[in-house]
Design a binder for these strands. Structure first.
Lengths: 247, 247
DNA sequence: GTCTATACGTGGATAGAC
DNA sequence: GTCTATCCACGTATAGAC
């Protein structure tokens, strides 16, 4: 739907074409203004003026203001994935890995809370290409699940848990992002605490669930949850098991 | 923030003032157009023209298009509460009561799925008076929790559960509404099934949690969840224990 | 292909006359 | 309370320069 080659890095590459440079200029200027004033308060005319170009030029590279946000949306997912891949080997225990994945996600968007809100705005419109739950962002959703699932690499879980855990964690991440939006505490410490506690609880529950004594009670419940979600067609497991990392 | 005397009933009252009649006319016309074409596709000019009045007149009664949606938002909560109060005595078992409460909520907004999406649009902006999670709708949130809690009347739960259940059910309702938005199944049967299954599971879990054998395992977990939520200041218990029903 | 300059129509919102 | 006139920002279109 939207073109997509700005990757969010604001460092210019030397072999950029002129068009790419202009496009980046639009993107960077827009992001700066969005962060300063907010999305709605920034007009395409502001952006083009600030970037020192004509209105038509900005529109030439981005069909709409939303398209700029779409680029940002994609770039965050891309960068998060890259970060996680790079830092995975430094964390061995499950809880450490989960913390790393979730912390980096929050830190990444921490300075852009207002922008984040702009992305959530389309959630109520399933048809909108930017709806975080809609068809239009399906591949981003699956990528996100895949990124999170990297933290689970090498772990062995019972079938039922292995099936539910990735989506559950994705939901947790969504919840954390939403909470972040509303978190006015200094440095958003509340969000981090909420996340850490939730993850600790999760890991704890996972180990409880593994106890053979409790299995007969827990397994049917998990099956039931699985059934409900499956029935509701809530399923974000990406079709490819491995995320796009060459190896 | 927004004025609020349209209660969503489209039946005119005989003792209405002229202003009230005009206001209702604006509201009713707007709702009809919103339902037919959608919120964004309906202009204030459309509304005023269809209602046979000047643009300025419509704006005199509603300071903005959003204010009309705000009225709708309030009226649904009001009507749901009234419905639940009226039908509570017909349902004795907990699960029946929950089903009644949740079904009526969904049925009430079933025809307005697009409008519902419009309400969710402001969730990303904590400052916005219409954000479903924001300060601006706090009292509506608490009313909604109170309405749901009516289904729990007379039930006895352990402290930890009694504390968590209302918010949890509110979250479930939010989830169901969100799911409804995306549910294209005939008559939204999927949403109803998802809800029924979730409620059945909930009731089942409640009875499991009551078993004395499992209490030592479950209670500390619930305490922990309670602690996390409390820490995060997620608390929607209305300050008044009893919702506004005279008795 | 990339960019500028300019103009038009639409829609939300407001001011002021009646 | 109601209407008319108006403002302003937006998306879009276009004609042409390089």
């Amino acid at each position: 739907m939207f073109s997509n080659d700005v990757k969010g890095s604001e460092a210019a590459q030397p072999d950029e074409t002129k068009a790419e440079r202009t496009r980046r200029k639009v993107y960077d200027t827009a992001m700066t203004l969005f962060r300063e004033r907010g999305f709605d308060e920034t007009t395409m005319r502001d952006i083009s003026q600030q970037a020192g170009m004509a209105l038509g030029t900005a529109y030439y590279h981005f069909p709409s203001k939303e398209a700029i946000i779409a680029s940002y949306y994609e770039s965050t997912q891309y960068r998060h994935h890259a970060y996680v891949v790079e830092h995975l080997s430094g964390h061995k225990a499950l809880q450490d890995r989960l913390k790393m994945v979730f912390h980096s996600k929050i830190e990444q968007v921490q300075g852009d809370r207002r922008l984040l809100g702009t992305i959530f705005r389309y959630t109520g419109d399933p048809q909108h290409p930017l709806s975080v739950l809609g068809e239009g962002t399906r591949s981003l959703q699956q990528q996100s699940v895949a990124t999170i699932s990297l933290a689970l690499r090498g772990e062995r879980f019972p079938r039922e848990i292995a099936e539910l855990l990735p989506v559950a964690l994705w939901g947790l991440q969504m919840g954390a992002l939403l909470y972040l939006l509303y978190d006015t505490s200094e440095g958003q410490t509340r969000t981090f605490r909420l996340m850490d506690q939730s993850l600790a609880l999760t890991v704890q529950l996972l180990s409880v669930a593994r106890k053979p004594l409790l299995a007969p009670i827990i397994t049917p419940i998990l099956r039931q949850v699985s059934g409900i979600l499956g029935d509701a067609r809530i399923n974000l497991q990406p079709p490819i098991k491995q995320p796009p990392t060459k190896e």
